[in-house]
């Protein structure tokens, strides 16, 4: 009888240790750091696709005679890129722990809208109507988007 009680007590003791260790393990597992959003291939693809569209836009405007570079001719391109960037921003906003990529996308969108507004303003100016988008400004703006997109892509790839 005494030996049966001892076996029962030992078995209860072992069970208690197992439960305690299981709790410790699950506690430690729950502590896994989750500070950065997981890498999102769709966001990366959308970034590349928007950057391609912007580059095609600049190639087209460079190939256009200076006097024909007025805003109305390119208005559709501006709208298409703005839509792509807004969709990308929406995607970034829905991801947890993603504030940095969200802000970079906001910066890109604001740069795009600023550049669009400058083009519109130059096209309406009598002084600049002969060449509303000079080559030197094209180079400047191209570099601006290359730098912003590079930052966005590096941020996304760092999440891998």
């Amino acid at each position: 009888m005494q030996s049966k009680n001892k076996t029962l007590a030992a078995s209860k003791w072992r069970m208690a240790i197992a439960v305690l260790l299981a709790c410790t393990v699950s506690l430690v597992s729950g502590c896994a750091a989750d500070w950065v959003a997981p890498h999102d291939q769709a966001s990366e693809d959308r970034l590349i696709s928007a950057y391609e569209r912007i580059n095609r836009f600049y190639d087209e405007i460079t190939d256009t005679a200076p006097a024909e570079r007025g805003y109305p001719r390119f208005a559709r391109h501006y709208a298409d890129v703005a839509t792509d960037l807004r969709v990308l921003l929406l995607r970034q906003k829905t991801r947890a722990n993603n504030s940095e990529s969200e802000k970079i996308t906001v910066n890109i969108l604001e740069s795009w809208e600023k550049t669009r507004e400058q083009h519109r303003r130059y096209s309406e100016s009598a002084e600049r109507r002969k060449n509303p988008y000079p080559d030197t400004k094209i180079n400047l703006d191209r570099q601006q988007f290359e730098d912003h997109f590079k930052a966005a892509l590096i941020a996304e790839r760092a999440k891998r």
Binding site: E100, S101, I104, N107, A152, A155, K159
Partner: peptide
């Protein structure tokens, strides 16, 4: 300034990761 902000936000992601 905005470009520099984007660039350092990317650095922040790298460091955090």
């Amino acid at each position: 300034k905005a470009i520099l902000e984007s660039e350092f936000l990317a650095v922040q992601v790298m460091v955090k990761k």
